[in-house]
């Protein structure tokens, strides 16, 4: 079946044959590999995207259910030339090691800051508790986002 939806502000059409996830369609069909596949079980947040205003794990969303939806992936958050404040903060604080978790953190944190520009440290941790990072121990990610939360105060 044909699914048409908006991805990062552009009208896109995907040819979905069955139960493919939104993640698979984004990565393999729409040329948007920024969202990562690390578990396909909704456990790690590497595949996080914003779907109709809410952060979801795109590995658990059927692409066929996305007709008419609006999706924002990491590719739609900022560009090499114009980084989103969250991206810049992660970069500045050394919060990126292997970076495999980073797209998920960027999407989830950018959404958090949109809803709540001054999250407390606990709120940051709770909002990002669905995103696994195996490299950093979360320390640098916390420092980056806490500073951002204060800086925008």
């Amino acid at each position: 079946m044909i699914v048409s939806f908006t991805v990062n502000g552009e009208e896109r059409i995907a040819n979905v044959s069955g139960p493919e996830s939104l993640l698979t369609v984004l990565r393999e069909e729409l040329g948007l590999p920024g969202s990562k596949n690390a578990c396909e079980q909704g456990e790690c947040g590497s595949c996080a995207v914003v779907l109709d205003g809410a952060v979801v794990t795109s590995c658990l969303v059927m692409a066929a259910d996305c007709e008419g939806s609006e999706v924002t992936t990491v590719e739609g958050i900022g560009s090499d030339r114009e980084l989103h404040a969250v991206q810049q903060a992660l970069l500045d604080h050394g919060a990126v090691q292997c970076g495999f978790c980073t797209p998920g953190f960027v999407v989830t944190a950018a959404h958090l800051f949109e809803e709540n520009p001054h999250p407390s440290s606990d709120e940051i941790k709770e909002a990002l508790s669905g995103n696994i990072c195996r490299c950093t121990g979360y320390g640098a990610i916390a420092r980056a986002l806490e500073e951002l939360a204060e800086g925008t105060a």
Binding site: G34, D80, L83, L91, G99, F100, T102
Partner: peptide
């Protein structure tokens, strides 16, 4: 780190 920008924007190419 120089690979940091492509990693935060989702443009870094992993083996996958």
């Amino acid at each position: 780190r120089i690979d940091g920008i492509p990693k935060v924007t989702g443009n870094f190419a992993y083996a996958s």
